[in-house]
Design a protein around this nucleic acid. Sequence first.
DNA 1: TCGAAAGTATACCGATCTGTATAGTGGAGA
DNA 2: TCTCCACTATACAGATCGGTATACTTTCGA
Lengths: 206, 206
Amino acid sequence: MGTTEQPQRVTMTRAARRILEAAERLFYERGIHAVGVDLIAAEAGVTKKTLYDRFGSKERIVVEYLTGRDERWRAFLARYLDDHLDAAHATPEARVLAVFDASRAWSAEYGAKGCSMVNAHAEISDPAHPAFPVITGQKQWMLALFTRLAGDFAGDVAGTDADRLGRTLMLLHEGALVAHGLRVFPDPIAHARDQAEALLRTWHST
Amino acid sequence: MGTTEQPQRVTMTRAARRILEAAERLFYERGIHAVGVDLIAAEAGVTKKTLYDRFGSKERIVVEYLTGRDERWRAFLARYLDDHLDAAHATPEARVLAVFDASRAWSAEYGAKGCSMVNAHAEISDPAHPAFPVITGQKQWMLALFTRLAGDFAGDVAGTDADRLGRTLMLLHEGALVAHGLRVFPDPIAHARDQAEALLRTWHST
DNA sequence: TCGAAAGTATACCGATCTGTATAGTGGAGA
DNA sequence: TCTCCACTATACAGATCGGTATACTTTCGA
């Protein structure tokens, strides 16, 4: 083994990008198992040889799909907060509500079928699947985010109150994504935002 | 066409029941597209001929799986409320919280991977699929249930307040099911219950 | 200029997919 | 007793699955 092996990294050529774009759209809209590699290659205008030269396996494309979407969401959120909050003077309340606003904007454009992580988890049963940590990692990251923001708001000593509030915000947000994807009622993320606002208003009296 | 056609109804023989039981378990644990009819037949200890004689198609088994699970959940809930509430004297608060308690008990036993409707929706893209109304119907039923209970609690004139509260309870509950399936944090349904309790306590001051 | 990398085109592999065909068995009711 | 009917057993059809092989072309930087 003279050369350094790097079986992990994908060389992101132009064709690879088109493949990933097609896969992201198809996986999200139709589900992972319902989409074959032949269809992905065809939609990307690429031969299967190229697809396997770049990614090596379908499983790999799935992992890349989920990590890519997660990264784009986090970048979208960071930019949204930058654009809509005065970093120095924004209140803790405003920060929390801005997350819901960002999620609403994201979902309106890219989230017609709800959360891609939840949907992927429905299709992946094996916890040893390489996509599993991506899915759970995204949820843990969101929970940590809400908990941190809740800590800024609640300002208690032990942090248990921040945990409680963070988890409640997480549930409201997660429920809103599901309700959005399933069209349970109109604009559920806006409703979640309003209820988060009311929750923060009355929080210290619980 | 002398005989009355009834292509809808499935004759529920003993073999059909075993097929459905196997399908329910496999579909829920591994996903719908990941499970083939050969596997279902094998797990049920039945030949494929019998499977197709009873159900006619895999799609039909999927519909029967979802409707069956929905019916069982509603029966479970009704029985739970009967057993844990004094029908005549239970307060509106207690009724709402009992729904969360029932959901927690159900999920502990049958809901390790979250909501089967949400998971099925992740795999079914076509709104014309016969399973679609089953999925959306279950969510609408739950929303109507929460809204009705919220109406008993809020007791306003126009019902808009009941709608608001019902939707919030729906989001909390839906989020808890997702968090439970993804193991985002321990016992999210109990947390949702506690937060619903706090929400009802402070509701009239919003 | 020349060689490596990235790409196309096409054909193929074995496995698995949903669904069907044929032939036969066992039991229960009229 | 005879006739449905639910069932087993096995084989097969045609399509699609993920993945590979062979041969050729394009692009581009050292």
